[in-house]
Design a binder for these strands. Structure first.
Length: 569
RNA sequence: CGGGGUAUAGCGCAGCUUGGUAGCGCGUGCGUCUGGGGGACGUGAGGUCGCAAGUUCGAAUCUUGCUACUCCGACCA
C-alpha cells in the first residue's frame, strides 16, 4: 500500500474527548472515528488490526473444533420472551418494531437464537457434542459508553456455544475452550490472566474471565502473591478471620458527633482507627409471604467495601441490590443514613465476618449526630448472622490458602461459562438419548471482545510516540520511509524496487511516497506503530545500505540492500 | 438515572465577566526555499459561535428551554 492512496488520517493533537491512552492513540493514529456516543467507524488502519485479531480468534476456534456460522443481528422479541430475558435483560437491550409493529431486539448476545437453531437442527445424541461460533457485531445500549471502543455500544464479539448431553462432556469442552483462549491471547502477544469469575446475569456454574492487565482496566483482580490463584474481586472470597474475637473491655457509651456523616470523619473525630469502626448499609430485602418488602442491614468494617455480588447472593437480600432511600431509613430507624448502627436496631442484620470479629468498636447509635463507642457483639446486640459481604483488599490471606492478596486492574477481554440447561430448557432444546428418550441439552458459552482487544493491546503496548503493536496484529509489518524521494532518483528507485519485492513476497508493507519531510513521516509511522521501518536515504546508499529501525526495541541498524528481504524469512 | 464539565473553522483553544465588524496555534490550497525527526517565508480558503425562543437599536457574549458530547457511580465482551 502506498500512503498516497491510503487514508492515513493521523492527528497531531489529542482530541479533548478521549480520556484513556488507547482511545487517544486510536483517534490520533487514525484507527477509528466517533459517530455518536458508543458508536465508531473503523478506518483502514483500525480495520486491518481488527481483522487480524478476528482471524487469530477464528483460527483457534476452528482448531478447537468449533464451526463458524453467522446469525442475524436483529432478533424477534418472542424468542426473548420464551427465554424470559425480555423482562430480565433491562434497558441495555435495544428494542424496536418493524413496519408491521412487530417487536424485535438488536442482539446483545445470541443464546436464544443459537439454542433455537440447535433445537431445530439436532435430533440425536449421536450429533453431540457440537460447538458453533460466530464473529459478529453486537449491540448493547450501555448506560455509559466510555473509553472509546473499550466500552462501546456497538462492538465486535466472538461468541461460541457448545451443546452436550452430559455435564462431564461440557466440562471437557470448557477446558478445551479455556486452552484455546490461552493460545489466542498468547498469539496476540498480550499480558493476560484467566481469573475465576462470577457468572452474572447469564447464569450457570463454572466461569472464567480472561483479563488483559492494565491500569485503565475497569475490573479489580485479586491475585495470590505466591500461587497462581486469580479471581475477579467480585468473586474472591474474604476468608473468615482465624483469631478469636477479643473480650469486651470498654463500656458502651454514647458520644455526640455533630454534623459528622462519613465513616472517615467519624474515625478522625473520635481519633480511632477506621478499622475499629463499623458501617451499616440498609438495602431492600426480598418480599415476604405477606407481600411486605423488609429492609436488611448489612454491616461492614469501616475500611471495607461492600461486595454487591456477594450481597445479592444472600437469600434475604433483593437482587439487583437496591439501597434504602433516605425516607425509608428515617421511617425504619428514625435517623439519617450517617448515624445508623447495628446496636438496638429492629431490622434483620447480616454482619461481614471481619466486622463480626471486632470488639469495642464504634458505630452509629440510630440517633442523628450520635455514635456509640465501646460497642460489642453479643453483649450489646442480639444474635447476628454472619456472611462474607466485603471486597477483598490487598494483604488479605488468599482464598487458595497460600500467600496474600495483591490487587491489579484488568480489562475483561474474554469470558467463558458453563451455562447448564437454562436456555435449553426454556427453548426446548433436546435430543433423543441412547434410551430413545428426549433429553434436554446442557450448554457452554464462550465470548471474546474482539474490538475491545484492539484497545487493550494498545493500553499494554505504547510509548510517548504512539502505538507499539505486537507483531501478530500490526496493521503493516513494515514501512518504507524514503528521505527526500522527490529530489533523489537513487532513493526513489531503491524504494520502489524494495516495495515491489516486499509486495511480491506477500509482506504487508506501507510505502510512504508522500512528499513530506522526514520528521513528519517518522512521527506518523511511530504513531501508527509499524514494527519495522526501512529508512532509505542518500547518506547510506553510497554503501548500498538501508537503515532498519525496530519500533519495539528502538534499535537501529544498517543493512545491505540485498539483505533486506532476509529480514522477513 | 443521579452528580460535575463542555459545546466558537478539520483538530486544540481564546473571546463571554463589562453586548457593538469572530480571533490564535496546528492542519489545509497555491508559490518559493528547505530536505535524516512534526521546517521557513509569502499568499489564500474555511465559522448561520450546538439548537430554539426571549431581552435589546444590536447577542458568541445576557435570560429561559432543549440537544449532543464528556468525566465520576450501578452493566458487561
Amino acid at each position: 500500500m502506498r500512503t498516497s492512496q491510503y487514508l492515513l488520517s493521523t492527528l497531531k493533537e489529542t482530541p479533548a474527548s478521549a480520556e484513556v491512552i488507547s482511545h487517544q492513540l486510536m483517534l490520533r493514529a487514525g484507527l477509528v472515528r466517533n459517530l455518536a456516543s458508543g458508536l465508531y467507524t473503523w478506518l483502514p488502519t483500525g480495520l486491518r488490526v481488527l481483522k487480524k485479531v478476528e482471524n487469530i480468534v477464528r483460527e483457534e476456534m476452528q482448531r478447537a473444533g468449533a464451526n463458524e456460522i453467522s446469525m442475524p443481528m436483529v432478533q424477534p422479541a418472542d424468542l426473548w420472551e420464551e427465554s424470559g430475558r425480555w423482562d430480565d435483560y433491562g434497558p441495555e437491550l435495544l428494542r424496536l418494531n418493524d413496519r408491521h409493529k412487530r417487536p424485535f431486539v438488536l442482539g446483545p448476545t445470541h443464546e436464544e437464537v443459537i439454542t433455537k437453531l440447535v433445537a431445530n437442527e439436532l435430533s440425536s445424541y449421536k450429533q453431540l457434542p457440537l460447538s458453533l461460533f460466530q464473529i459478529q457485531t453486537k449491540f448493547r445500549d450501555e448506560i455509559r459508553p466510555r473509553f472509546g471502543v473499550m466500552r462501546s455500544r456497538e462492538f465486535l464479539m466472538k461468541d461460541a456455544y457448545s451443546f452436550h448431553l452430559e455435564k462431564d462432556c461440557l466440562e471437557k469442552t470448557y477446558q478445551k475452550m479455556f486452552d484455546a483462549y490461552c493460545r489466542i491471547f498468547d498469539r496476540l502477544g498480550l499480558n493476560y490472566r484467566p481469573v475465576l469469575a462470577d457468572t452474572g446475569s447469564i447464569g450457570g456454574d463454572a466461569s472464567h474471565e480472561f483479563h488483559v492487565l492494565a491500569d485503565s482496566g475497569e475490573d479489580d483482580i485479586a491475585f495470590s502473591d505466591v500461587s497462581d490463584f486469580a479471581a475477579n474481586v467480585e468473586k474472591a472470597e474474604a476468608l473468615a478471620p482465624t483469631r478469636e474475637r477479643a473480650e469486651p473491655k470498654q463500656a458502651l457509651a454514647k458520644i455526640n458527633t455533630p454534623n459528622i456523616k462519613t465513616i472517615e470523619d467519624v474515625a478522625s473525630f473520635l481519633n480511632v482507627d477506621i478499622d475499629k469502626t463499623v458501617k451499616t448499609l440498609l438495602v431492600c430485602g426480598n418480599e415476604t409471604e405477606q407481600g411486605e418488602q423488609p429492609l436488611i442491614a448489612l454491616v461492614l468494617r469501616g475500611d471495607h467495601q461492600l461486595n454487591e455480588v456477594k450481597a445479592e447472593s444472600i437469600a434475604q437480600v433483593a437482587s439487583p441490590i437496591t439501597f434504602a432511600t433516605d425516607e425509608q431509613i428515617l421511617e425504619a430507624v428514625g435517623c439519617k443514613a450517617g448515624s445508623i448502627g447495628p446496636i438496638g436496631m429492629n431490622i434483620e442484620i447480616i454482619v461481614d465476618r471481619s466486622a463480626a470479629q471486632l470488639s469495642d468498636f464504634v458505630c452509629g447509635a440510630n440517633e442523628n449526630d450520635v455514635h456509640f463507642t465501646g460497642a460489642n457483639w453479643q453483649r450489646d446486640s442480639s444474635t447476628i448472622e454472619m456472611a462474607d459481604l466485603r471486597n477483598v483488599v490487598e494483604g488479605d490471606p488468599s482464598p487458595c490458602g497460600e500467600g496474600s492478596i495483591v490487587i491489579k486492574r484488568g480489562i475483561e477481554v474474554g469470558h467463558i461459562f458453563q451455562l447448564g440447561s437454562k436456555y435449553a430448557e426454556a427453548l426446548n432444546c433436546s435430543v433423543l438419548n441412547e434410551g430413545g428418550k428426549n433429553q434436554t441439552l446442557t450448554m457452554g458459552c464462550y465470548g471474546i471482545g474482539v474490538s475491545r482487544i484492539v484497545a487493550a493491546a494498545i493500553e499494554q503496548n505504547h510509548d510517548k510516540f504512539g502505538i507499539k503493536w505486537p507483531k501478530a496484529i500490526a496493521p503493516f509489518q513494515v514501512a518504507i520511509v524514503p528521505m527526500n524521494m522527490a529530489k533523489s532518483a537513487r532513493v526513489k528507485e531503491t524504494a520502489e524496487s524494495l516495495y515491489e519485492q516486499l509486495n511480491n513476497a506477500g509482506i504487508e508493507v506501507l510505502f510512504d511516497d508522500r512528499k513530506e519531510r522526514p520528521g513528519v513521516m517518522f512521527a506518523d509511522h511511530e504513531l501508527m506503530g509499524t514494527p519495522l521501518l526501512l529508512i532509505i536515504g542518500e547518506r547510506n546508499l553510497d554503501a548500498q545500505q538501508i537503515e532498519v529501525k525496530n519500533r519495539i526495541s528502538g534499535e537501529k541498524s544498517l543493512l545491505a540492500i540485498d539483505e533486506i528481504m532476509s529480514l522477513f524469512e
